[in-house]
Design a protein around this nucleic acid. Structure first.
Length: 426
RNA sequence: GGAGUGUUGGCAGAGUGGUAAUGCAGCGGAUUGCUAAUCCGUCAUCGUGAAUAGCGAUGCACAGGUUCGAGUCCUGUACACUCCGCCA
């Protein structure tokens, strides 16, 4: 959410930011005019409330003779006030809805572009694997090593689900342990969080009203299935006023994640790339309302996830996501993409975002600044730590051998009982 | 699922229908000066202000209701705790 006062005072700047992100149809003049009506209504209803308070307070000390007249007058003012408050509620709801639909403004440093074609490759790290045999894709590797039940499981759980078996299932969890240990070493608080959430956190994070189609909803309990631990961590401290000394708060949150993939019909239908349920270790940071501070954390989070891919010995590229491709909540976004030999391209494994105070305004997450004692909205940032099974795709494809076995990188070996290689022929 | 108890500012904690005590922390100011103490103000949201001034409105888990007036009475919901039931 943006600050309405900021919008009014910087209309041109806001307009440019919205346009860069592709929200050209948001009507700022209308928003400002609704806000102006709202303010007028507040002023007049407050005058009525003041009058009513004065009347009410005078009743106790009034004489028996004058009391009935004052009560009658107070009732009358009360009726008028009630009418104005009803009107106010309606207008407030309209205004709130408009504000919830306002995306965050992009960083001036973010590349400009209409869609993913405008994303900029910042760097490529690691050498692409060279095979002296025809490499198999991840599905074939799973078949020859008895690592999955990709066909049977769809009979049980439907399309875009997966079941992985044997060493690969333990590899999946081993990778999460490696990442959780790494984040803990960097001072992050490891935390396992529920995948169930009420509706309010969805608005807090910005999933609603922007991408409601993506979310599973369970009407019997009025609960949603979370698509990321970010959702839960972002609301964990909602409505709190933290002490500045408590910041930064850094979480490494692990949770099963659920996504309907409603807009992805036909894309990546086979295999482990795009599934309805997956496991994710998420990096989440709450820091001071200071752009230098949050940009510093943005780089830090990016560095950590690059280190994860380096530990996994996967070649990857870093993308600076352009204004038209980044999501509504984001100020600046980097994606990491790891190399997938069978597709001859890089595929997304990490998404690293600085949200500035946009989410904190929605969740009312504040802290008291040490310097001036003022209450301020915090900045929040998030990044993938690792998400599986998607990350297994580049992993087993890049590390495969001619006999179908898959090499385990040195950093991961301690998490795999020292094994250097897995597979039927290992 | 059943029964009971509870939810008051950043924290602690009073308040039995008539303007939300008090303490601690933080911030601002004053004063005295021996490593600190004391005093005053402030403390969340919004409106009106150039204003971080004054004035006013709102805020006691949330949403309604009764009343001239609700932290207080009534109803519903959420959450927490205790006991019972069920359970990986």
């Amino acid at each position: 959410m943006l600050d309405i006062k900021f919008i009014i005072e910087n209309k041109q700047l806001v307009r440019e930011g919205l346009d860069k992100k592709g929200y050209t149809n948001i009507d700022l003049d209308n928003l400002i005019s609704v806000h102006s009506s709202l303010t007028k209504l507040k002023t007049s209803s407050q005058a009525l409330a003041e009058e009513k308070n004065k009347l009410s307070n005078s009743i106790k000390s009034a004489s028996n003779e004058e009391r009935p007249a004052i009560i009658a007058k107070s009732k009358e003012v009360g009726e008028e006030l009630k009418k104005e408050l009803a009107e106010l509620d309606e207008l407030q709801a309209k205004f709130d809805d408009m504000m919830l639909r306002m995306p965050n403004l992009p960083s001036p440093q973010a590349p400009q572009g209409p869609d993913e074609s405008g994303n900029v490759v910042i760097r490529k790290v690691g050498d692409l694997p060279k095979f002296d045999f025809t490499p198999r894709d991840h599905i074939e590797l799973m078949e020859i090593n008895d690592w999955g039940e990709m066909d049977r499981i769809t009979k049980v759980s439907g399309a875009r689900t997966y079941a992985i078996k044997n060493e690969l299932s333990r590899l999946e969890l081993a990778i999460h342990m490696l990442v959780l240990d790494k984040l803990a070493a960097y001072g992050f608080t490891t935390i396992t969080v529920p995948s169930l959430a009420k509706q309010k956190p969805l608005y807090g994070m910005g999933y609603l009203p922007f991408s409601g189609d993506e979310i599973y909803y369970m009407p019997a309990d009025d609960l949603y299935l979370s698509g990321t631990a970010e959702l839960v961590l972002n609301s964990l401290h909602a409505d709190e006023i933290l002490n500045e000394n408590d910041l930064p708060i850094t979480y490494a949150g692990f949770s099963p994640c659920f996504r309907r993939e409603a807009g992805a019909a036909g894309k990546d239908t086979r295999g482990l790339v795009r599934v309805h349920q997956f496991m994710k270790t998420e990096q989440f940071v709450i820091c001071k309302n200071d752009i230098n501070e949050s940009e510093k954390w943005h780089q830090k989070l990016l560095n950590i996830s690059e280190e994860v891919l380096q530990d996994l010995e996967l070649p990857y590229q870093v993308l600076d996501i352009c204004t038209g491709d980044m999501g509504a909540p984001k100020y600046r976004q980097y994606d990491l993409e790891a190399w997938v030999p069978s597709q001859n391209c890089y595929r997304e494994t990490h998404s690293c975002s600085n949200i500035t105070d946009w989410q904190a305004r929605r969740t009312n997450l504040r802290y008291r600044d040490n310097a001036d004692g003022k209450v301020k909205f915090a900045h929040t940032l998030n990044n993938t730590g690792i998400a599986t099974p998607r990350a297994l795709v580049p992993f087993i494809e890049c590390h495969q051998n001619a006999d179908g076995t898959v090499n385990i990188p040195a950093k991961l070996q301690p998490y795999m009982n020292g094994k250097t290689k897995i597979g039927k022929n290992a």
